[in-house]
Simulated scan of single mutants.
Amino acid sequence: MAADMTYLCFVPEHTDTGHRVLGIHTSEDGAVAEPLAELVDGPAATVLADALNGIVQHRDTAQRQLDAVLADVADDVRAAVSALLPRLARTGAAQERLRVAAALPGLCERGPGLFTTTNCPGRCEVCGTCRNDCAECPRCRQFDCEVCLPVVITPRTAAALDAALGRLADEVYDIAEQTPLAGGGPAIDADTTIPPCVADRDPWFLRRYARAFDDLACDLAAGRRPIPACTAEEIALDLAIQDAERCQHDEPDLHADFVAAYPGSRFDFDWHILQDALFQDKDYEGLLAHPIPLSYDAAEEWFGEFGNVPTRDPERGFRR
């Protein structure tokens, strides 16, 4: 098996003679389906394939799903998956490699529902009988358990953040379409959605900036933490977190509509933990209120990818 093999996805195969999981990977001759593991029942094969696709796509709860299904399989299946995981950690460094896995139907609908309300495993080895979202556990209440750590993004937090990202992206797209260079009317007031230092940029810059909000929303749709891949995404995420918090406090009815479809958690809407957990650093903050227009080269640096997080698919296009 080649060390640099790139897995595109995993699929379950169900026949009259048994059930197995196939790994679809690239080779010199194209895509190849390789048997990974044989299982005694169909649901286990389906769940295992879905969990491995989640690992490939960096889904937030994929490891937890994988641990759960591996607890009830044969030793040879656990060994095969364990040998595979280091290779999967390198797969998906660029999102164009995720197109096949992203297109497959999953066990859960894409979106905020892919996140979890709790990190409690049900009977924690540290807390003992810890259950019910850790609400009655004195150790978890003080965050003394290293297993039942606070959840960074819950389903309702993801839904509120996704709504904010969509709102702000649409605002920037509207501004891009109404700038004089785009052939529209006078440029509308960017308010705080577009930092002053880039408010004079052309429609091409503004459309890419709007796409930064959409790229982060796509992460949430896939069940991934929205980790910024460039400066534009850092600014977009910071503004979206602020806007989601503003909506929660200033427009409670609208906020309630956004999150009503998802289960609640005691970790919902902890906007401070998002600021701490999702950013590599806060070097971008000076740009949010920087009053002097940036040079062309300095503005273009906003879209230079960091390289130490999964990169965006260069052929992803624009939502509008």
Rank of each mutant, 00 (worst) to 15 (best):
Val172Ile: 13
Tyr173Trp: 15
Ile175Leu: 14
Ile175Gln: 10
Ala176Tyr: 09
Gln178Thr: 07
Thr179Gln: 06
Leu181Ala: 11
Leu181Gln: 14
Ala182Val: 06
Ala182Met: 05
Ala182Pro: 00
Gly183Asn: 08
Gly183Asp: 02
Gly184Glu: 10
Gly185His: 08
Gly185Tyr: 01
Ile188Glu: 11
Asp191Gln: 15
Asp191Tyr: 09
Ile194His: 07
Ile194Glu: 08
Ala199Gln: 12
Asp200His: 08
Arg201Ala: 13
Arg201His: 03
Arg201Phe: 06
Asp202Ala: 11
Pro203Gly: 06
Pro203Phe: 04
Trp204Asn: 09
Trp204Lys: 11
Phe205Lys: 00
Leu206Gly: 07
Arg207Gln: 15
Tyr209Val: 08
Tyr209Arg: 06
Tyr209Trp: 10
Ala210Arg: 05
Ala210Trp: 01
Ala212Pro: 02
Phe213Met: 03
Asp215Lys: 05
Leu216Pro: 01
Ala217Met: 08
Ala217Gln: 12
Ala217Pro: 01
Ala221Glu: 15
Ala222Asn: 09
Gly223Met: 00
Arg224Pro: 01
Arg225Thr: 02
Pro226Cys: 08
Ala229His: 01
Cys230Gln: 12
Cys230Glu: 07
Cys230Asn: 14
Thr231Asp: 04
Thr231Trp: 03
Glu233Val: 05
Ile235His: 04
Ile235Gln: 07
Leu237Gly: 00
Leu237Tyr: 02
Asp238Cys: 10
Asp238Pro: 04
Leu239Asp: 04
Leu239Gly: 10
Ala240Cys: 05
Ile241Asn: 00
Gln242Val: 03
Gln242Leu: 15
Gln242Phe: 08
Asp243Ile: 00
Arg246Gln: 13
Cys247Leu: 11
Gln248Gly: 08
Gln248Trp: 03
Asp250Leu: 14
Asp250Glu: 12
Glu251Arg: 15
Pro252Ser: 09
Pro252Cys: 03
Pro252Leu: 01
Pro252Thr: 02
Pro252Ala: 06
Asp253Pro: 00
Leu254Lys: 08
Leu254Val: 11
His255Thr: 09
Ala256Leu: 06
Ala256Thr: 12
Asp257Tyr: 04
Phe258Ser: 07
Phe258Trp: 11
Phe258Leu: 05
Val259Gly: 03
Ala260Cys: 02
Ala260His: 09
Tyr262Arg: 06
Tyr262Ile: 00
Pro263Cys: 10
Gly264Ala: 15
Arg266Glu: 06
Asp268Gly: 09
Phe269Gly: 03
Trp271Ala: 03
Ile273Cys: 12
Leu274Glu: 10
Gln275Gly: 13
Asp276Asn: 10
Ala277Glu: 14
Ala277Phe: 01
Ala277Asn: 00
Leu278Lys: 07
Phe279Gly: 04
Phe279Val: 00
Gln280Glu: 12
Gln280Ala: 14
Gln280Lys: 11
Asp281Trp: 00
Lys282Gln: 12
Asp283Ala: 15
